[in-house]
Design a protein around this nucleic acid. Sequence first.
RNA 1: GGGCAGGUUCCAGAGCGGCCAAAUGGGGCGGACUGUAAAUCCGCUGUCUACGACUUCAUAGGUUCGAAUCCUAUCCUGCCCA
Length: 426
Amino acid sequence: MNLIEELRWRGMLQDMMPGTEEQLQKEMTTAYIGFDPTAESLHIGSLVPILLLVHLQKAGHKPLALVGGATGMVGDPSFKAEERKMLDLDTLQKNVNGIKAQLERFLDFDPAKPNAAEMVNNFDWFQHISFLDFIRDTGKHITVNYMMAKDSVKKRIEGENGMSFTEFTYQLIQGYDFYHLYTAKNCKLQMGGSDQWGNIVTGTELVRRKARGEAFAFTCPLIKKADGTKFGKTESGTVWLDPKRTSPYAFYQFWFRTSDEDAESYIKIFTFMEQQEIEDLITEHRKDAGQRLLQKRLAKEVTTFIHGEESYNFAVEASSVLFNKDTAAILSSLSEEDLMDLLNNIPKYEISRADIEAGKDIVSLAAESGLLPSKSEARKMVQGGGVSVNKVKVPGIDMVVNTESLLRDKYILLQKGKTYIVVQTV
RNA sequence: GGGCAGGUUCCAGAGCGGCCAAAUGGGGCGGACUGUAAAUCCGCUGUCUACGACUUCAUAGGUUCGAAUCCUAUCCUGCCCA
């Protein structure tokens, strides 16, 4: 099975330029994907592009990961309703570095290999290009009519908020990247999410007109959930790849909670499992969906890929305790070490022991620990029966937490729905 | 620079002098049911020293017993014209 066939059955192929498959058959091809430095860490939205690069490298081709130090200064307007906030240069630089560090873990950069991955930053070539040079040498090749015809731009032009010249320029800047990589690194293929199609095509166009070369492209569909809501968000926000921002436990939980419908497509996209194995697993899962076979495996594969096996094991263990029916009993029987290990995955809040000894009302504790954003919310949530202490539902807002609630004489496990916070006395 | 439209709670979007912490929808969160799924149903969704008080409807002033609603100035946004 060649790369394109592989991606196709996995459901990772949306649009493809004619000749792309042939090009990939013909020779070792260098291909790139751009990553936006909007934050210091990548999140799971970037997972698909990363996986595309990994698949590409596995198939013997050479992946380039581009971090958009320059494009990040402009902001991609594609399908966005409003003008983007500008990042200051320091933040941008920090983000670029953070993203670089993460990407390095997923691709093989061993220079001994002919298809070693490489990292590039478009700021490196854009910083030397003057505005005049750019509009003269590059802008000449593309008409405004062409740029405006793009779906991604049309919406903004017809929309209410308009679009700045800066953002309008974006596709040309990104297009130039492709041209540059084509001439400098013989890069003939660009990949990306389907929202990037317009920008990517501008790039191939530039390669054709400016360098008289031939460039190819394909995109993968944007991941959606079956119910139409946004992929990659949880109640606590974005799911990041950085364990400091999203703990491996939370990461594992995110995948574990996938719906049956989504799990079938996700397991193809987000894991490297073989086709046969996946199909068998899906059949098996359908027989008894309550077993959550798919979700378990999906969570295992992805968590291991991103955070490693050890973190995965922790996550599983923590989950099995936290979601057990007898959690309350288990919690009080665990040794301090085991409890520590378990609680380590959960956000912590420290409080002085004296405060607990004096007795602390549940509403204040929930608010101060950050379980709920304010006392009002805490009050409402408790009244609605949404808060538990050590897995026992809080009966009312006048409940007082004191030393009797301490596990191992030291910890309290606060819970709101499926999120937990550990209160630790010091 | 000129003309027009507009800035309301996370978003969309009502309200146009008291009945407004502000309709409705979406989103979010929680509960029930289940399989830590989906669908469905229910509740919550400004803050607090909490049957009451306080701060909010771009900003600053003003009119009024009383303003998100009226007036004035300022700022911002979009559209059209130069």
